[in-house]
Write a protein that binds this DNA or RNA. Structure first.
Lengths: 249, 249
DNA sequence: GTCTATAACGAGATAGAC
DNA sequence: GTCTATCTCGTTATAGAC
């Protein structure tokens, strides 16, 4: 039964049957913590099971009881990182949804979630780089990562869906060349979402992370100084492209 | 005189005085080519002077005649990459400017430059990752990179400046909180550019690379299929945020 | 002056015998 | 799990060819 669980999965408290399992969870967490330290110091490409083991006072072969390979450890770190941004986004979304029903709520939620993503990224730049930066050479993400990777996007979809239902959206018409792709996209990511919303939403998703990446990766050095106010304004304008803000002009 | 030139700088043809200099240029190019191969195979973090030398049939210490350190070789690759995207952007800008005077030219130039950046990135994903992806651990970019790094941005500024002068721009008002930053930004990057344009322009710059990065780094896998038409539409909408497209709705 | 080659350093990874 | 012998790396000093 338990053998079927992947080594890196965090088991729910109810699954803890005794000291054995608890120790396993603690060691797994210690390995990931140490690996994250090395991620910050040396980068994902140089993540080495041996170095992690050495730092923990273990022998490298012992690590293989917890992570069958270096790539599995990397996958665990990637899943954790996606889950961490995803949870930050979901939490800020819940907080911003508190006073529901008020007009303009869609925009407020959008900005809140964007800021949560940015805050998390600035607080965890190396984990951010792991998931939204350059791909790690020789590593290909397994299927396990796609669910966690989608969490932030799901929050954005929910915001726009709610606003679409409750507030109505002001959107530019969908160009003909994009119609087939937009329809496929909508059916794929959120059945029931209007194609004219789906395409701009995916674009806005990428653009949001463009803003965050430029700041985290240093492209704004000596360019943008008042970064938070700049970011808030940029994502507010970005919200316009998904219909969350009335169009002026 | 020539001694003041950094080893990795490509000297103009007029500076070639004889076989010596020609050989030096050729060896320098060979080193960079081999380094680029390793960049693709192993990533920037694992770029190794010794491996480059081995592959070229040289001894590692000989490389120090051309690049004083590993970081200098990295810097050369980074500068080359920035220059390559920058030149692609400038070339496509010139091409799109060919039939001047026609209305809507600003938007056409904007889309052309964006597509040129995307094309270059898709053709050179590893060099793109080097400059717009995760920072290389332990490496800090010297001042030499800031000029080349600004080239694409300069093209975008030129497009918006021209359009501002020739076509007029339709822009949302500048919020008060952003005014000081926008004024500083405008004075910094393009004296004479209206602050209400400068801030959205820098944001659009980051968002453009967000779209490109998501595609190059695989975030659109299993999400966006018709990527070129999607990209064109997204950057067209993006042009709206810098006033290059009349506002509808 | 300009280049390449040899040798070495200290540090770290790696493979295998035990 | 431990130890060791053998790799890698960036970098420097030095000697000698052109």
């Amino acid at each position: 039964m338990f053998g079927a669980l992947r080594a890196w999965q965090t088991e729910p408290m109810s699954a803890i049957r005794g000291a054995r399992e608890r120790a396993r969870i603690e060691v797994t967490a210690a390995i990931k913590d140490e690996a994250r330290k090395q991620l910050a110091a040396e980068g994902a490409a140089k993540l080495s099971l041996r170095a992690v083991a050495r730092e923990l006072g273990m022998v490298s072969s012992a690590l293989y009881r917890y992570f069958p390979s270096r790539d599995d450890l990397l996958t665990a770190l990637i899943v954790d990182a996606y889950d961490a941004v995803g949870e930050a986004a979901e939490r800020s979304h819940r907080a911003a949804t508190g006073a529901a029903g008020a007009p303009g709520t869609g925009l407020a939620r959008w900005v809140a979630v964007a800021c949560a993503v940015r805050d998390w990224a600035l607080a965890h730049p190396h984990e951010y780089a792991l998931i939204y930066g350059s791909p790690v050479p020789g590593y290909t993400a397994p299927q396990d990562t796609v669910g966690p990777a989608a969490r932030v996007g799901m929050v954005l979809i929910a915001i726009v869906e709610d606003a679409h239902r409750d507030e109505g959206l002001a959107l530019p018409p969908l160009p003909d060349e994009l119609r087939p792709e937009a329809e496929r996209l909508a059916a794929d990511i959120a059945p029931g979402l209007a194609p004219a919303v789906a395409a701009p939403l995916v674009a806005a998703w990428a653009q949001l992370f463009g803003l965050v990446s430029f700041e985290v990766f240093g492209q704004f050095n000596r360019v943008v100084e008042a970064r938070e106010v700049f970011f808030r304004q940029a994502v507010t304008e970005l919200a316009r492209t998904v219909g969350l803000l009335g169009r002026r002009g």
